[in-house]
Amino acid sequence: MQRVPLTIQTLYAELDQQVRDAATAAVLHPHGSLVVKEIKGRRYWYHQQRIEGRQVQRYVGLETDELLRRIAERDAARSQEAERRTLVRSLHAAGFTRPDRRTGRILQALAEAGVFRLRGVLVGTVAFQVYGPMLGAKFPAAIAMTGDVDVAQFRSVSIAVEDRTEAMQDVLRRIDPAFAPVLGLSRTPASAYRSGGFKVEFLTPMRGPEEDDRQPLPAVGTFGQPLRFLDFLIYQEVEAVVLYDAGIAVRVPDPVRFALHKLIISQRRRDLAKARKDRAQAHQLLEVLAEDRPHDVQERWAELCGRGPKWRSLAVAGLETAPSPIRALLP
């Protein structure tokens, strides 16, 4: 892990703001209008527009001061695309990892379809790639390479958001017509799509003791494969930018949760190479976070351990090869 100068971190902060502004502006068609829905004391903004005689609403986001600023400045955001591309090139030249062209085009298609706007969360190694510029650190390229894209979403969010993408298979086939659903032995609806050796998979937290049936995620036009421990990972997700083209606005797990989750997953892997990669990603992130956000690390660790002895034993096992300062921080 190598720290980068403050000037480089400032470039990412500027890119992040511009990409977020542009993503909000893209939803706000000039001929539509904005409406607000209040649910349980919180205000949610939607953009509505009449299309082919039908009133269509698109989810914009939870009301915050930042969202209100983006809405107010939406016209200026539409004119900054060339500047965003320059910032992406500068960050890549500084040594940060960016996705290959195929992965980048798929992420771009998912973002344009509304997957991340509708609270889909990018997980896995592609998410790990964004933590470098976010945290101001360069990680070894060998642990940031992947041939998959994984997206997770809470089912409750998918139902409550009151907006929909088109069918996910249609979204992916516009990028690559070879994408086909991966069907299980029981022929249940697909949660994954494959083209050659590349897979895009959708996940959702497991609610029952051992829940195998894929669950509908209506907001993102597909089903999700239930996974244990995923609820800890994607709770309180954060905004981030993928360094591709003019930048892609995504949501990723909080880096502290990502690192601690990787400790657990590393102990459940049958593939030893993937287990080593999980631990390496966790240790690299924790090395940075132990310096910059030690209290957050300790709070999330206490939360994890409070979920039961199995959670703690798996996480502790994942720490066995971690540097001693990290082990000392997590009792």
Results as ranks from 00 to 15, higher is better:
residue 124 G to P: 01
residue 137 A to W: 14
residue 136 G to S: 10
residue 157 V to K: 03
residue 149 V to N: 03
residue 145 M to A: 15
residue 121 V to N: 00
residue 163 D to P: 02
residue 132 G to C: 13
residue 133 P to R: 10
residue 163 D to E: 07
residue 140 P to M: 10
residue 137 A to N: 02
residue 162 E to S: 15
residue 157 V to N: 09
residue 141 A to N: 11
residue 151 V to E: 05
residue 126 V to G: 00
residue 125 T to K: 04
residue 149 V to H: 02
residue 122 L to M: 08
residue 143 I to P: 00
residue 143 I to M: 07
residue 148 D to T: 07
residue 160 A to T: 06
residue 150 D to E: 12
residue 163 D to M: 13
residue 137 A to T: 10
residue 130 V to H: 02
residue 163 D to G: 07
residue 151 V to S: 03
residue 121 V to C: 08
residue 136 G to L: 10
residue 139 F to N: 06
residue 158 S to K: 04
residue 119 R to A: 07
residue 151 V to G: 01
residue 132 G to M: 11
residue 124 G to T: 05
residue 121 V to Y: 03
residue 127 A to G: 02
residue 136 G to P: 03
residue 162 E to K: 14
residue 146 T to K: 12
residue 149 V to Y: 08
residue 159 I to L: 14
residue 135 L to R: 05
residue 162 E to V: 12
residue 155 R to N: 13
residue 150 D to K: 08
residue 158 S to L: 10
residue 154 F to C: 04
residue 144 A to M: 10
residue 139 F to E: 02
residue 158 S to P: 00
residue 163 D to S: 13
residue 130 V to L: 05
residue 132 G to V: 10
residue 149 V to E: 05
residue 141 A to E: 15
residue 132 G to A: 09
residue 123 V to C: 01
residue 129 Q to N: 01
residue 142 A to S: 13
residue 153 Q to A: 15
residue 140 P to T: 10
residue 126 V to T: 12
residue 161 V to C: 02
residue 148 D to M: 09
residue 134 M to C: 05
residue 124 G to D: 01
residue 138 K to C: 11
residue 129 Q to K: 04
residue 141 A to T: 08
residue 135 L to P: 02
residue 126 V to P: 00
residue 154 F to E: 14
residue 136 G to V: 08
residue 150 D to I: 14
residue 143 I to F: 06
residue 155 R to A: 13
residue 139 F to I: 06
residue 146 T to R: 09
residue 162 E to Y: 13
residue 123 V to Y: 01
residue 123 V to N: 00
residue 153 Q to I: 12
residue 156 S to T: 13
residue 125 T to M: 09
residue 140 P to L: 14
residue 142 A to I: 13
residue 125 T to Y: 05
residue 144 A to L: 11
residue 137 A to Y: 10
residue 129 Q to H: 00
residue 126 V to S: 02
residue 132 G to K: 05
residue 162 E to C: 06
residue 146 T to H: 09
residue 142 A to L: 12
residue 126 V to I: 12
residue 147 G to M: 14
residue 128 F to W: 10
residue 144 A to V: 13
residue 155 R to I: 15
residue 128 F to R: 08
residue 157 V to Y: 15
residue 142 A to C: 11
residue 162 E to A: 11
residue 149 V to K: 10
residue 163 D to W: 14
residue 123 V to S: 00
residue 123 V to W: 02
residue 158 S to R: 03
residue 125 T to R: 05
residue 141 A to H: 14
residue 162 E to W: 08
residue 132 G to W: 12
residue 160 A to N: 13
residue 141 A to K: 11
residue 150 D to C: 15
residue 119 R to E: 06
residue 152 A to N: 03
residue 123 V to M: 03
residue 152 A to S: 09
residue 145 M to F: 09
residue 161 V to N: 01
residue 156 S to F: 12
residue 151 V to I: 14
residue 160 A to Y: 09
residue 153 Q to Y: 09
